[in-house]
């Protein structure tokens, strides 16, 4: 899922200054699961902004709404009335959600209330970790399902750097060495021979370096 983190209230106050009616718009999908922009976080954020408005005499009013998914026009329509009534929208969706709302409502200022961080999983309660760098050319099959592009600090594709201590990464000792994990995993599933293959330099043309990527499925186009 997409993992995000809220911006601070002073940052948001600075972003929305000049507007009188703000709609805090939540998203019921990824950012709900990572506790950044779901219904509860919208309620907390709206409350905190109302307190900030009154405590600092900023003079803006805050309303709140959460829709199922901000990156889908079908769901965005459910927020149309509330968005039309507001001067500006503070989206607690991911970067894609914010832009989807902004594209649908061309004359309405739409601001991001979250910093979208990465594609990751819930590691344990309250801890999310990055697992996928969205490189566009998945190599997980070669590495026992552990991504060296994302989880090795040096993105090495041909074995460990030699700097790890025990099973810890030398860049950050709090982090496991991805190559240690890859070796253990391949050993466990009896595929250590995969490590004998030399990986050629990765084709980064499939990543973000060429600008935003598009996928077209002709069989689904109308």
């Amino acid at each position: 899922m997409i993992v995000a983190e809220r911006k601070t209230i002073p940052e948001i106050v600075d972003i929305i200054k000049g507007h009188k009616n703000i709609l805090v718009l939540g998203c019921g999908t990824c950012v709900t699961v990572c506790l950044a922009g779901g219904e509860r976080e919208v309620s907390i954020m709206a409350s905190a902004l109302r307190i900030a408005s009154r405590a600092q005499n900023l003079g803006f009013k805050v309303s709140e709404l959460t829709i199922e998914r901000q990156c889908d026009n079908i769901f965005i329509e459910q927020a149309a009335e509330a968005i039309e009534k507001a001067d500006a929208v503070l989206s607690l969706g991911c970067g894609a959600g914010v832009q989807a709302i902004a594209e649908r409502f061309a004359k309405k200022p739409v601001y991001a209330g979250l910093n979208t961080k990465f594609l990751g999983i819930l590691e344990e309660r309250g801890t999310w970790t990055e697992k996928c760098a969205q490189c566009g050319d998945c190599v997980l099959a070669d590495y026992g399902g552990i991504c060296p592009v994302t989880r090795c600090a040096k993105h090495l594709l041909n074995g460990p750097c030699g700097g790890s201590r025990e099973d810890r990464c030398e860049v950050n000792p709090n982090r496991a060495c991805a190559w240690q994990l890859i070796y253990k995993r391949l050993k466990d599933i009896g595929q250590l021979d995969r490590l004998e293959k030399i990986s050629m330099p990765k084709q980064w043309g499939t990543s973000l370096s060429g600008g935003p990527r598009v996928i077209i499925r002709e069989d689904h186009r109308i």
Binding site: I9, I44, A48, L49, I51, A52, A55, Q56
Partner: peptide
């Protein structure tokens, strides 16, 4: 934390 950020 929220209170502090909001000015209380």
């Amino acid at each position: 934390k929220y209170l502090q950020e909001s000015g209380l």
